[in-house]
Simulated assay, not measured.
Amino acid sequence: MARWIALIFLLLVQPAWGWDLDPKLEPLRPFLGKVWRGEFSDSTPDKPVIDVSQWQPALQGKAVRITHSLNKGQYEGETMMVWDEQANSLVFYYFTTAGFYTKGTAYAEDGVFYFHEQVAGAGEGIKEVRSEVRFVDGEMHQQAFYLKDGDWVKGHSAIYQAVH
């Protein structure tokens, strides 16, 4: 009987994905294991822009994979994020169906996640992207800024709710 109780206890305290998350990725835990749905701030009833993203642990807890889809597959992207000991930072690659990709770094400070990306292959003149992501009252708030033609401009923003 004691073995069964110990087994049940172990099953209850283990993460749902079956392994521990790398301690350096712990700040991302509130986003993990959920599907997030957000409507872009410039979305209109005639031209809605709906983003659905999923944040999951990957590579046995050593990475975080983020997949997202705008307007049910009109545009898609996938990010892989890991802790880089040499850089002493979170690093990531983001690949898209639009034919460009980014390489970036991320860090958390005072409950805000900051992302800075170098863009490769973008035909719209965007060379860098900076984003801020906040977890506020169970919602994910995101704001992007683009370095385009030498100037930083405000990009897309959205507020996401966890749908499951």
Rank of each mutant, 00 (worst) to 15 (best):
M81R: 09
L7C: 05
I5L: 14
D22P: 03
T102P: 01
L10A: 14
D22V: 07
R29F: 05
Q143C: 00
F145K: 07
M1I: 07
W83F: 10
K24M: 12
K148M: 12
E132F: 05
L32W: 05
Q60W: 11
A63W: 05
E76R: 10
V133A: 13
S157M: 08
T105R: 11
T105F: 01
S157P: 00
A58H: 08
S53K: 06
V82M: 06
E85R: 10
A158C: 08
M80T: 09
I66K: 07
H164S: 14
F92C: 00
G73Q: 01
R65C: 09
V35D: 11
L11C: 15
K47A: 12
Q161N: 08
Q56F: 02
D22M: 10
G138S: 06
H141L: 14
D22F: 05
Y107L: 09
L7K: 15
Q143R: 10
K154E: 15
K148L: 04
L10Y: 09
G61K: 07
K47T: 10
D151L: 03
P27V: 02
A162P: 03
E76L: 05
Y114L: 06
A106L: 01
L25Q: 04
A63F: 07
H141E: 11
M81E: 04
G121E: 06
Y93I: 13
G150M: 02
Y107K: 11
M81G: 00
D149T: 04
Y107N: 07
H68M: 14
A122L: 11
T44Q: 04
V163H: 09
L147D: 07
P23A: 09
Y94I: 00
G104L: 04
E78I: 12
A158M: 07
